[in-house]
Design a protein around this nucleic acid. Structure first.
Length: 862
DNA sequence: GCGGATCAC
DNA sequence: TATGGTGATCCGC
């Protein structure tokens, strides 16, 4: 698909063109550009949306004005100094220029629209767009001639092109097609980086090396016929592409360059093929060059999906991305891996083409007379004085044609959010209901990924399109509907109160959660559990502490939870019970009957009526060590802490708790497999989820434990745990204990599967490390990995799950809020916004080498 | 840590 | 009638 950026801009350019606010060229064919602008303006002018656009525009202009003023203050001496510094840095990064990688950016052409056209032949020669009357995701090339673009509201598109057919998106279908494409991409780079359903980066350097020795058969493909037979393996029989099928692409892309309209079409077959009797007539042989590889990729994509892709080949991601746009649609472009080739390409390249330079940046730079990369380079000293270090480093990289040469693995998620646009809602009560509904959805999403965060942000957009965000960070992680809503509600309340007596007139509300603890945090959290428990004034008793923390941390569980055979039953200490106003004791008990915790501080409800027992109920508490899982009875907190400390610090802790660290099911697996390497079940689950990019349910989890046992298969890990809690000691660890053991072969499989989104799993023979938590030998010599494992065991297995369950147990959802009437599920875009390694990568200040750099300047641009 | 902005898709 | 949703990052407080 074309870059949204471009689509967006063209639309907004059109929007603003007649206002004299923007004079970019759009280059329309089908409909006169003036007409397009006129129609858009007529549909837009006077709207609240438009007024807000103007307002934002003014703000940008103000920014520019400030910048220009700042510029006038710069002395020539400052500029000279800046020049020196910048050029030193330029020399440094130039020195590190790496041309040894071949990066490919593959981009499906008008993806959603193309899928719809493929599947509905009637649409083939009509202008179509995918989306709704409110917003379009993409349009086909026919519609684009009328100025119909993505990120344009459908109702305006309809005015531009009355015959436009707007098709509702079908994301499941797009996902499926995307998977087909990804299967092909994986053949060339198992670690390829998918940016969305229709876009991906590949590093084919390794493939190219291997390919050099490949025989022709391995590079030949038969041309298939109209049926969509699965057949994209080299050398497999397929028939000729039928006329009707071949007609699809040209109709989609009328202006395709003829030589690229059908990659791999017989007209492109290598000459060697004709001379080789081994290769049948209706086949194509691809060469061994990068260009040939990419042709092959695009050929296979089209054969398999009947859809076309464009691609760019370059020594880094930044250039590859720009290249893929060059011969779009259905084309490709390569920048050869030489500095000269790169510089030639960069020379006149408008900076706006670069990923990361958006509308605003473009405008600001334009105010400085910068439009092309050459100009960007020429103004580098000035830029270093006007922009942040992060920014000017980024600019400098662009202007030298530098970018990421490796595809960074996906990092951990940083936030998760839900937001929704609706017709004006101005009644506070409805706003709260809506907020709760969003919190509920968010909590569900969080649960799917097993995440908890500390910061809750509420986003509000009023009917004038003015956006506000309000955030609150709490001291410990939250994840349930009630916890999130408790925070979000207050944020919302503050805003409602602030405008009183006027109502908030909202058109959008969103809830986001962030500040997920990283591994370090978790470790710290775990290790400081002792201090955690001691928090409060002057070493309070455990009971006092718990009472304080009940709302947030939910470290408390009514005793019924594990009354069956728990050690805890025997020794209970007195404590008080308090609960949040929203909690419902009935559900608490019901829930608790179904759960058991390895580590719990148990409170027994002594009053019949929880609602009235605030702060006065006696509860009894028992501690179980989170490390060795042994009940510590009603010992003092200090003694308990010491014990935990000792367990955490003692590497031979496993010696003390070999027997009971694993639940029955897992033990069985371990025995059966008799292995050396183990993963936390949940770790593996997370891992596989990342790979498949799917939601993982607890059912999946059980599959991992014992795939052959159908009786277990159908059960969730929770039910498994429940079962165990009944059959065994309830003090056994729950999820933490579900450690999957894998044969080395399995580990190998994992490593291979990792291809999609690699984890850094290294399995090396030799030195055995024993996890002090799960007692299982870790067959890795990588300390980091080992530590990660221990962290997972500690955190996910014990504290996290304890809290999770406690929380779920105590605050059972209140009665459902009214339906907001906005239940239409929107596709969650897999928005990976990482600019392949630029913006953030160079944010650290560099030590400048004290070499004289001045004379080297000329090497960059002449 | 917060809030507004920018950017990508 | 009607201008999206998700996620990341940066900057100035």
């Amino acid at each position: 698909m074309d870059t949204t950026k471009e689509k967006n801009d063209n639309y907004k350019d059109n929007l603003l063109l007649r206002m004299g606010l923007n004079d970019n060229k759009a280059g329309m064919e089908g409909l006169d550009k003036e007409k397009i602008n006129k129609i858009i303006m007529e549909a837009t002018k006077g709207s609240r949306f438009y007024e807000n656009e103007l307002k934002k525009e003014k703000q940008v202009n103000q920014r520019i004005e400030n910048m220009m003023h700042q510029k006038t203050q710069i002395t020539s001496q400052q500029l000279r100094n800046a020049q020196l510094q910048v050029d030193r840095f330029a020399m440094e990064i130039e020195h590190r220029r790496d041309l040894n990688n071949t990066i490919v950016h593959v981009d499906m052409d008008a993806f959603y629209a193309a899928v719809e056209m493929r599947d509905t032949p009637e649409l083939k020669d009509k202008p179509i767009a995918v989306g709704s009357m409110s917003m379009l995701s993409t349009s086909n090339y026919h519609a684009r001639r009328f100025g119909v673009r993505a990120a344009m509201p459908g109702f305006i598109a309809k005015r531009l092109c009355p015959h436009l057919i707007i098709v509702a998106p079908n994301f499941d279908k797009y996902r499926a097609v995307s998977e087909e494409v990804k299967e092909i991409l994986a053949d060339y780079d198992p670690n390829f980086m998918a940016m969305s359903l229709d876009e991906a980066y590949l590093n084919i350097t390794k493939h190219l090396q291997e390919r050099q020795n490949w025989p022709e058969e391995k590079r030949s493909y038969f041309i298939k016929t109209g049926n969509l037979a699965e057949n994209d393996e080299p050398g497999k029989e397929v028939n000729k592409l039928s006329e009707s099928d071949r007609s699809i692409s040209p109709l989609l892309f009328e202006d395709s360059p003829p030589d690229l309209q059908s990659p791999g079409h017989p007209c492109q077959v290598n000459s060697e093929e004709q001379n080789n009797p081994q290769i049948p007539q209706n086949s194509v042989v691809f060469g061994t060059s990068a260009e040939e590889v990419v042709k092959e990729i695009r050929f296979r994509i089209e054969q398999k999906t009947t859809l076309t892709a464009s691609a760019g080949i370059a020594p880094n991601t930044m250039l590859a991305k720009v290249c893929s746009d060059k011969n779009k649609p259905n084309g490709q472009y390569q920048i050869l891996p030489s500095r000269q080739a790169v510089m030639d390409f960069i020379k006149d390249l408008p900076i706006r083409k670069v990923s990361g330079i958006g509308k605003v940046t473009e405008k600001m730079l334009k105010a400085l007379g910068i439009i092309t990369c050459t100009e960007l380079y020429q103004q580098r000293a000035l830029l270093s004085l006007l922009f942040s270090e992060t920014s000017w480093h980024y600019f400098l990289h662009i202007s030298l044609g530098l970018g990421s040469t490796h595809l960074a693995r996906d990092g951990e998620r940083k936030s998760m959010s839900v937001e929704r646009t609706f017709n004006e809602i101005n009644k506070a009560e409805e706003q709260y209901d809506l907020c709760q509904e969003l919190c509920r959805e968010l909590a569900q999403d969080l649960q799917k990924e097993g995440l908890k965060g500390r910061t809750v942000t509420v986003k509000l957009k009023n009917v004038n399109f003015e956006v506000k965000t309000r955030a609150s960070t709490v001291s410990s992680v939250v994840s349930t509907t009630e916890e999130i809503f408790a925070i979000a509600k207050e944020l919302l309340r503050t805003e409602i109160d602030a405008d009183f007596p006027y109502p908030l007139r909202l058109r959008l509300m969103g809830v986001r959660i962030s500040s997920f603890p990283n591994e370090e945090d978790k470790k710290h959290q775990q290790r400081s559990i002792i201090g955690f428990l001691q928090a409060g004034n002057q070493a309070p008793s455990a009971t006092e502490y718990i009472e304080e923390r009940t709302d947030k941390d939910q470290f408390v569980k009514p005793l019924k939870t594990s009354h069956k055979k728990s050690f805890f039953d025997k020794k209970q200490s007195e404590t008080k019970w308090s609960h949040q106003d929203t909690s419902k004791c009935e559900t608490v008990d019901k829930q608790n009957l179904q759960t058991s915790q390895p580590f719990q501080i148990i409170k027994k409800k002594t009053s019949e009526n929880l609602e009235t027992s605030e702060s006065s109920n006696s509860c009894q508490m028992i501690f179980t060590c989170p490390v060795c899982f042994r009940e510590q009875g009603s010992i003092s907190l200090e003694a308990f802490n010491k014990h935990v400390d000792a367990c955490l610090d003692c590497p031979s802790v496993s010696e003390n708790c070999k027997v009971s660290t694993c639940s029955q099911a897992t033990s069985a697996v371990n025995q059966k497999e008799n292995t050396h390497h183990s993963f936390s079940l949940w770790e593996k689950q997370d891992y596989e989820a990342r790979q498949k990019n799917i939601e993982v349910t607890s059912e999946d989890c059980v599959d991992l434990v014992e795939p052959k046992d159908s009786s277990l298969k159908a059960r969730s890990i929770d039910s498994l745990r429940r079962k165990h809690s009944k059959e065994e000691h309830s003090s056994l660890p729950s999820k933490s204990s579900c450690t999957v053991s894998l044969e080395n072969a399995d580990v190998g499989l994992l490593s291979r599967q990792e291809s999609l989104q690699p984890l850094s799993f290294k399995v090396t023979a030799g030195q055995a490390l024993v996890c002090p938590v799960c007692s299982l030998e870790q067959k890795t010599s990588d300390l980091t990995l080992f530590n990660e494992h221990v962290d997972v065991c500690l955190n996910k297995g014990i504290i996290q799950e304890l809290r999770n369950d406690s929380v779920n147990t105590i605050n059972e959802p209140e009665e459902s809020s009214k339906s907001t009437g906005m239940s239409n599920k929107v596709q969650k875009t897999v928005a990976k916004t990482k600019r392949p390694g630029l913006m953030t990568k160079y944010s650290t200040s560099k030590k400048i080498k004290p070499n004289n750099p001045r004379h080297t300047l000329d090497i960059f641009f002449k």
